[in-house]
Design a protein around this nucleic acid. Structure first.
Lengths: 199, 199, 199, 199
DNA sequence: AACTAACCGAGACGGTACGTCTCGTCTTCGC
DNA sequence: GCGAAGACGAGACGTACCGTCTCGGTTAGTT
């Protein structure tokens, strides 16, 4: 019976948050500034997002360029190459990269957000990646015993590592080398994993 | 003639910092509380460490159990296994794991600390790991074209990824699967990397 | 053509306001809580009362025990004694006293309400009190030059003063002493006042 | 051993508070604005004053024109006249009057402040006033049975009443009439009060 | 009987100030 | 002059209410 949530205000806040993220980065973003730019009250943000991390996550996600899906190109290597190239291209925007690094950082010190970040952001990407490997197994590109869960760690682990540590660039050369390495690992016989899954 | 830096106070602060890290985690640690527990002034901490991240880093490092070196066991696989097993054992202490995750998080939002963290903490570990692969190449275990820099990313990337995301355990099974995969990647022929090094 | 004001809702709000005043005092009363207790919307309150002070004033007034009239006992002293005794008896209920003190406080910081409070609440009491003295002059109890307006200040001033400051009790002894003093002042010859009236 | 309270900052805050009181009145004064004008942090104000009412009280008191003492003119009437004339003159500055009315209002809704206001502000004035009557009794101007405590209520009560209600001006005519009335009351024989004192 | 305008409950909204928190710097005094 | 103690400026935090607004749903009185 009450007034409905204003979609316009919802969008204004997301846009304001996105622009603040761009200009100041995750750390420099404050609820106060987002509210002011959106012409919104702080309470409205706290009501719907509960705080800065969830707002930043949704604001990041709302940008179409940050919604990476994995296209089926017909081969595992092709899927990986297409996806990872788009990914590193997106991350070459420094502020965008700092934002998602900031979200990962927040997850380290905020257990409540860690769960949301994993479930809303990381797991969907993992699931899509695992599907690529599973499809590869069905097509006979990869041995049936290949462990898609582990291979996903092998792909995303080094990408995140370079993103967070910044010791070397995330570029095409890195992507190619990573694909070559992971494909080699996938084709090697190795026992299936036990005990390393989410419960 | 100035009074000299008090070694006793230095140690008291490190101990206090370590105990606060244990009890409250990296985020919950404040300079104020460390100073109080150490019976020290805040200025003393700012004078010698410059801030919370550097103090936490040194306090973490000062614990002997956190100083991992890589022993030479005669084979790459053995070196990796020995080192990684010790590593995951240390990280199975939740608070210890949260501390170094917290340091990584801090590095994401604090560029000055990011440099120190990389140079003082991460690079030495990388260098030791690269040495393992280089030694393997010398011994003929690995092809001479194997890219030790990339292989280091392949090892540490997934470890950090699981540590930070927490989607699956860091345990013996994971270590074994990781070693098998990376060894397979190392033995596969792949072009050497270009342009992915620190400048 | 339109729906009429619901008397039931009107009463529910007044009752809710009275109970909140009792439990939390004037300061602790919020429109939000009154609305919730009454099962009413906030807008309904703002529509009919305009805000918290007017609501509190009407809620206070709606309680029969707070509607003091002055009975004619045949003598000024008797009128004063009867009225003031009832008054201090009502004010000995702490929360009731706090409510009217709160209304006076509100009037200090809210000019719009100050006018309403004076006209709806204070002036009627003053008028009744002045009538007592005028009647006394007609009956020859007081000199014709006695200034009923000033005498009203002399009566109500100290009562409000003790109510607001709380340095000494509002009790029978005080009432007697006050009456004695004011009667003495009334009988003394003193020039009529100039320039101290409402315009 | 620690840093001492900065007298300069103390004064800057009091001055800023006084100027805000002048410009915006008690209600419109906010800690935030006072801090900003004084170039101080909000915490500094909360540390030393605990909140707006105590700050406003001290800021009001710090203005020399608000420190009314009662001079000995040789007669009770003279003392009263001199003091009350100065008092109403000070209160004829509207903003000054609103400030002390605001303090009295605050005391109605803030029991902790009520105590401070009574003890630091009201009681000293009462004590001085009582001393005037006691001196009058010693000099034989007033009967020895005159109740100085009650007479103080009779003086200050109507003054506060007019200040707070604003139904009539606080001017010289009012002062004269008040003095005449209270002197008449003081000279009339009336039993000493019982049970109307602070405990 | 259908229309329709105002009333009602609910509660989202833009604001504003609150009092708290922590940061990193600055000042004072004891050793 | 080092070091403890802690005051200081700064500014974001999350909360509490304010008074306004927008919803459906619910009554009356017309038409």
């Amino acid at each position: 019976m009450a007034r409905k949530r204003s979609e316009q205000c919802h969008l204004a806040i997301l846009e304001a948050a996105a622009s603040v993220l761009d200009e100041r980065g995750y750390l420099g973003m404050t609820i106060e500034e987002v509210a002011q730019r959106a012409g919104a009250g702080k309470q409205t943000i706290y009501r719907w997002w509960g705080g800065k991390p969830m707002l930043a996550l949704e604001a990041h996600y709302a940008v179409p360029a940050n919604q990476h899906t994995i296209a089926d190109t017909g081969s595992v290597e092709g899927d990986l190459r297409t996806h990872l190239m788009k990914l590193v291209a997106a991350l070459s925007d420094g502020e965008r990269a700092r934002t998602i690094a900031g979200l990962m950082a927040e997850a380290q010190t905020n257990p409540k957000f860690a769960v949301a970040f994993r479930e809303k952001f990381l797991e969907p990407k993992r699931a899509a990646m695992q599907a690529v490997f599973e499809l590869g197994k069905e097509r006979g590109e990869l041995p049936v015993l290949a462990d898609a869960y582990l291979l996903t760690d092998l792909i995303y682990g080094p990408v995140w590592y370079r993103l967070l540590v910044g010791h070397a660039p995330l570029d095409g050369g890195f992507v190619e080398a990573l694909i070559t390495s992971v494909m080699a690992a996938a084709r090697a016989p190795h026992c299936s994993m036990v005990g390393n899954r989410d419960e």
